[in-house]
Structures are given as structure tokens and as C-alpha cells.
Design a protein around this nucleic acid. Structure first.
Length: 429
RNA sequence: GGUGAGAUGGGUGAGUGGCUGAAACCAACAGUUUGCUAAACUGUCGUACGGGAAACUGUACCGAGGGUUCGAAUCCCUCUCUCACCGCCA
């Protein structure tokens, strides 16, 4: 959530930034907001002034009673009645205005960082790294869904029976390699200083609000009606919300967490080649990294996180690229996002496997996550960042395709300690 | 699910209708002393939102939301959570 004082002080920049983020009528929206806020302050001042008078009168009553002047006390009580009513009305007005301002403020997306390219969609994302200039010429004969079925790694039909489309069942070496990937990713992250967390996977409404999924993105999350809980779409939600409503000391920062969780997304409206095989699922596994940092360092740390994920992807030996997302393709809460895409050699397309973002204070403002700055003694909002390290299904898809050979699927070296086998072999008929 | 007890500042915890925004202690911060560290002593020290160039000042906040009252941390109602015991259960 953005802050009105900042928006007031940087009106032109904010308008430009919101326009980059594809918010229509940014100038009018902001000016309307400022006007509401002016009104709020005007009424608030009146209201507080009245309240100060009332407080004084209440004291006077107490004093009169103490001095044995009950008729004096009664007189003041009579005088106060009208003012009290007026003040209550003003208070209600302030509340209404605050509600309206909040509603509008909550709908504003985060302001993109100045390095974010303008653009409407994926075509205008900027490629900042291509691990292998020859990547797109790498072709493999079979797509992962054929391999997964042949080698009996994943049973899509069985998942349909148990739950529905988009809920695959991993079996045998398929299940094992999933577990190996999860463990490898977690080990890689903890070795870099991240503390492993096992968070709840169901989240409440406050948590959904804190990281920016709610309101407006209800449609993306599964909802448990009976208990009013959402299934987490990413570990980002429970892990970041661990720090909701906190006042930290400056030297508590930075906080580094990593978590493996299943993730649940409704993905309403997806179809065609995008949902084939492992490309897009309703339930999938992901290992996430989250950092809570000092605001002055968040962009330096974003680069560190980007490099961390790049190392992890590199260690799997498959071609990938890193994109700086353009304004039109970025998420609601993000100020700067790097997407990682891996080359799917059996499909001949890029698949997103990680998204590393700096949210600046957009989430922490909603979370009321602050720290006491040593030098100034002031409380400042921390910055939050997160990224996938990594999302499993598309990694598995690319891996099966890339490492397919005549007699099986080779396991990349980095995973060998975790799988216990060097090759996925054809099951006996 | 049932019964009972609770929820106070960064933390522990006092406070049962008016000079209490809140004792005390711990932590934190600044200083004094000491050869560094430590200890001791002194001082500062809640948050948010208004007004003000600033010094400063107003209002609100004692789990959340309502109510009673001239006045509520304190009394009443509802809800949430925590703890204990019972029930159920991996």
C-alpha cells in the first residue's frame, strides 16, 4: 500500500510510475485522493478541537464534584450535551472518509522502480541475461508429458480421478526426484544463510491482505468457506506474514527465510498449451526465499538474490534467461521484478521458474512491519523481497526434456547426492 | 466441542470510574567512571494521526468491536486469541 504523504510530495513521479503500471487516469485518481485527504484533515481538526473541549469539561465536572458543588457539575453536564453530539457526528464523518481513502489507496499498485522499462506485456520485457546464446536452437524429441508417462513418473489421469485436472500424481522415481529437488533447493538456500521455515499453508484474511493478494485477487485462491481460510498460493504469504505487526531493532535486519510449501492456484481461465503437462498446475511445489531488509539496502539485496537464484539454476546445467519485467507485466505489489525462464527443449519455449521481486515498503506498510533506526531513532518501514528458488514443476519439465537420452533420463550432477540414482530408467513392461 | 482463568508499552508486569499515556523492572539509546570488554552510576526512552518553520502542542490507542457515563485500561455486551482441565484425535 502506498502512502499519501509520499504521493503528495512526489505527485509527478507517482503519476508517471502509475501510468507505467497501466493504471488508467493516474492523475485524476491521485488528485481525487488528495482532495479526500484534505477533507479528512479538515474534519479531523474540528473533531479533535471539540474533543479537547469535552475533555476539559469532563475534568471540570470532576473538580466540581470534588469541591462539593453538585449543581455546578450538573450545569456543565447540560452544556456539554450538544457539543458531544456534534463531535460524534464529526467523528463518524472522519471514519467514513478514512474508509473511502483506504479503499482507494488499497487499489493502487506499487510504483515501479525507475529502471523498469515501459511496456504492455511479455514482449517488452528486457532480457538481462541469456545463459547460452544458442539456447533456442536446442531441440529434444519428446515433450515432458510423454516422457513422464513413458517412464511412469507422473500420472495425470490418476490426479483427475482423485481431485481434478491440474493435480498430478507423482510416482516412483518421479516422486523421488521431486523430493530430491526440494531438498537440494533448501540445502542450497540454507547454505547461503537463509533460515528454513515450515509455515502453515492455510492463511487467514489478514495475511492475504498483508502481502497484497487481498482484496481483488480472491479469484486466484482456493477458499475454505467453513473456516474462512485461503490455501496459500505461495509461501511468500505465510512467511512474510510471520513478521506482521512488528517493531524490529535495526540489527535484527536483514532477515532471511526459505520455505518449501505446496502452492495452490485456481488459475481460472487458463487453457491450451499453457496448461499441458506440468506447464501450469493447481497444486505445485515451490521453495521460496524471503528477505526483510533495511530500506537503504533493498536494491543491492535484490541483486544478491537474483545472483543466488542464477547460481542455483546454473547448477542444474540447463539454459535459462533472466528478464527485467516491464511495467505492464509486473505484479501489483512489486517495484522491480526479475523473472527467470528455463528453456523447455521438448516444447521449444521458455518457461517461468522464478520471479524475484523487491516490494520496497508496499507490503511492509500493509503489514505494519517497521524497525527502529539507530541513527535517527525513528521508526521506518522495512523493505520486503522474495523470490522462488525454485518452482518445481517447470524445472522438472525442462529437466526431463533436456536430459532425455536413448536409454533413460540422466540426472544432473548437483542432484545425484539426493536422488541416489544417476538415471531414470524405463520401467519393465 | 465443554468449563474456568486471562490478554496492559520492544519484553516481564502493577494498576478496578477522574492529576494514569500508564508504576516498577528488563532491554534499547546517550553520558560519567574504568586500561579494552564487562560492571556501576546518571539521564533519555510507546505508537499513530492532526496543527506548527521550530520549540512545542492536540487527539486517539491498555486483544478487537460496540455500549453505559460529564468522564472508562478500570463497569456491561459481542467476538478473537492464549493458558488450564475435560471430551475427541494423527
Amino acid at each position: 500500500m502506498l502512502q499519501i504523504p509520499y504521493l503528495r510530495d512526489h505527485r509527478e513521479i507517482a503519476i508517471k510510475a502509475l501510468t507505467t503500471k497501466k493504471l488508467p487516469h493516474a492523475a485524476q485518481t491521485l488528485d481525487a485522493l488528495f482532495k479526500l485527504d484534505d477533507e479528512r484533515r479538515r474534519v479531523l481538526t474540528l473533531c479533535e478541537h471539540n474533543q479537547a473541549t469535552l475533555n476539559q469539561q469532563a475534568k471540570a465536572v470532576g473538580l466540581a464534584m470534588k469541591n462539593g458543588l453538585p449543581q455546578e457539575a450538573e450545569k456543565i453536564k447540560g452544556e456539554v450535551a450538544v457539543l458531544k453530539e456534534q463531535t460524534a457526528a464529526l467523528g463518524a464523518q472522519v471514519q467514513a472518509l478514512e474508509g473511502e481513502i483506504h479503499q482507494q489507496l488499497v487499489r493502487l499498485p506499487n510504483l515501479p522502480h525507475k529502471s523498469v522499462p515501459e511496456g504492455n506485456g511479455p514482449d517488452q520485457n528486457e532480457v538481462v541475461l541469456l545463459s547460452d546464446p544458442n539456447a533456442e536452437n536446442i531441440q529434444r524429441p519428446q515433450p515432458h508429458w510423454d516422457l513422464a508417462t513413458q517412464y511412469r513418473l507422473i500420472d495425470f489421469e490418476l490426479g483427475v480421478k482423485v481431485t481434478g485436472a491440474g493435480f498430478p500424481v507423482y510416482t516412483g522415481q518421479g516422486a523421488k526426484i521431486q523430493r530430491a529437488l526440494i531438498q537440494y533447493f533448501l540445502d542450497f538456500n540454507t547454505a547461503a544463510g537463509y533460515t528454513e521455515i515450515q509455515p502453515p499453508i492455510l492463511i487467514n484474511e489478514d495475511s492475504g491482505f498483508g502481502t497484497g493478494q487481498l482484496p481483488d485477487k480472491e479469484g486466484q485462491m482456493y477458499f475454505v468457506t467453513e473456516d474462512r481460510l485461503y490455501l496459500a498460493p505461495t509461501a511468500e504469504v505465510p512467511v512474510t506474514n510471520l513478521y506482521r505487526d512488528l517493531l524490529l531493532q535495526e540489527n535484527d535486519l536483514p532477515i532471511l527465510n526459505t520455505a518449501y510449501t505446496p502452492c495452490f492456484r485456481r488459475e481460472a481461465g487458463s487453457y491450451g498449451k499453457d496448461v499441458r503437462g506440468l506447464n501450469r498446475l493447481h497444486q505445485f511445489d515451490k521453495v521460496e526465499i524471503v528477505q526483510i531488509v533495511h530500506p537503504d539496502q533493498s536494491y543491492a539485496i535484490l541483486e544478491v538474490m537474483k545472483n543466488h537464484v542464477a547460481q542455483l539454476v546454473t547448477s542444474l546445467g540447463m539454459p535459462f534467461r533472466i528478464l527485467r519485467l516491464c511495467g505492464g507485466d509486473m505484479g501489483f505489489a512489486s517495484a522491480l521484478t526479475y523473472d527467470f525462464e528455463i528453456w523447455s527443449a521438448g516444447q521449444g519455449r521458455w518457461l517461468e521458474i522464478s520471479s524475484v521481486s523487491n516490494f520496497e515498503s508496499f507490503q511492509t506498510n500493509r503489514l505494519r512491519l517497521r524497525f527502529k533506526e539507530k541513527e535517527s531513532g525513528k521508526n521506518r518501514l522495512a523493505h520486503s523481497l522474495n523470490g522462488s528458488a525454485l518452482a518445481l514443476p517447470r524445472i522438472l519439465a525442462a529437466l526431463l526434456e533436456f536430459y532425455q537420452e536413448e536409454d533413460g533420463i540422466r540426472i544432473p550432477d548437483a542432484l545425484l547426492p539426493y536422488t541416489g540414482f544417476t538415471k531414470i530408467t524405463r520401467p519393465s513392461p
